[in-house]
Computed example of a mutant assay.
Amino acid sequence: MEEYAYVNGKKLRKGYTTGTCATAATVAALSMILNQEREDKVTVKTASGVELTLKVEDPTFSELEASAAVRKDGGDDADATHGLLIYANVKLLPDQTAITIDGGKGVGRVTQKGLAIPVGMAAINPTPRRMIEENVRQMIGDDCGACVIISVPEGEETARLTYNSRLGILGGISILGTTGIVNPMSEESWKAAITVELTMLYETGHRWVVLAPGNYGEDFTTQVLGIDAGRIVNMSNFVGHVLKEVQRIGFERVLMVGHMGKLVKVAAGIFSTHSKDADARMETLVANLALMGAPLELLEQVDACLTTEAAGELIHAYGYDGIYQILADKIKARSERLLKYRKPEVSVDVVLFASEAGYLASTKPLDVIKEEWQ
């Protein structure tokens, strides 16, 4: 593993996610059952293929059950979960074939619709779940089952420092990670990295750029719109900063592709979309629904939602799907207004989607966008 990243001339240490810790602890515990030997270190591959050797803490084992912990290390992007022990308790079930994965003490439970995990399940995201299951299956074969419980003793207390409760995740932290590696991305270094990526794209002759606020936007762009991944820049939460950099560097056209829950904030003129800076998702929906003449009953229900996915179900049920076109047009107008008094002039188009419903709206017909951006 490359232990450091160089961003804007600074040497920053990488870390690994809670999902990687949970996977490593599971592998360590299962190894102890299979080998009947104490494990002090464990080697695993992350979801992105990076091989890590991590220290095992508090290992215990018996003939069919074991427990092990791996300490979360966020590198130079340390957050509230940095330093937490992530435990895995594994039971072998020789008379079964299923592998079950659940959360114990300190791992949150999903209580609201709209997240990647169904209501009632432990907040262990899809990628960590897949990595745990794949490793267990590889180790025990097809003719045996196992029960894996992930726990974080200090998770409930730590969760108070996160936004989990606002997302309907109660009782602990989430087990997260899409790549397994935490790249050091303080805001300034992250912005600098985005500028480098934009500059490189411009210098290769591109004058149009797709901006996505995250992996979901990138996936929608490539899989649904069919646009080459090499034209996409991940702008994260720095919408206003990146738009201004796009204009400064000299791009002429922007296509913003993002999940409703992120880009709806831009419709209200919020250009730093991290929840620590601003939210106003439901307020923006409520205000625009009210302008459409929506009944008070719908407005109150949307205002009580914790996610735009949950709000979207209500909006569809009441027949107000037209709000998405209004919001897409407002995002375009707000973004172009931000750049109005500088040169060159930048044209912005927008595509909105949701996790469950898929495509919602765009500032041009989707077929036109696909054709223009091929």
Rank of each mutant, 00 (worst) to 15 (best):
T195H: 13
E197I: 02
E197N: 15
M200C: 12
L201Q: 03
L201V: 08
E203W: 07
T204D: 14
T204K: 15
T204N: 15
G205E: 09
G205N: 05
R207K: 14
R207T: 10
W208F: 00
W208N: 15
P213L: 11
N215Q: 13
Y216R: 13
Y216L: 13
Y216G: 13
Y216M: 14
F220C: 12
F220H: 07
T221A: 05
T222L: 00
V224E: 15
L225N: 03
L225T: 04
L225R: 06
D228R: 03
D228N: 14
I232N: 15
S236H: 14
N237R: 09
F238I: 08
V242I: 15
R248E: 12
I249L: 04
F251A: 08
F251P: 10
E252M: 01
R253A: 01
R253M: 00
V254P: 14
L255N: 05
M256Q: 06
M256K: 09
M256N: 07
M256I: 12
V257L: 07
G258K: 10
V264H: 01
K265D: 07
V266I: 04
V266E: 06
A267H: 04
A268V: 00
G269P: 03
G269F: 03
I270P: 01
I270L: 06
I270C: 03
F271V: 01
D277T: 10
A278I: 05
D279N: 14
A280R: 09
A280I: 01
A280N: 07
M282H: 09
M282D: 08
E283C: 02
E283G: 07
T284I: 06
V286T: 06
V286L: 02
A287I: 07
L291E: 14
M292T: 01
G293P: 01
G293H: 04
A294C: 00
A294W: 01
P295E: 06
L296A: 08
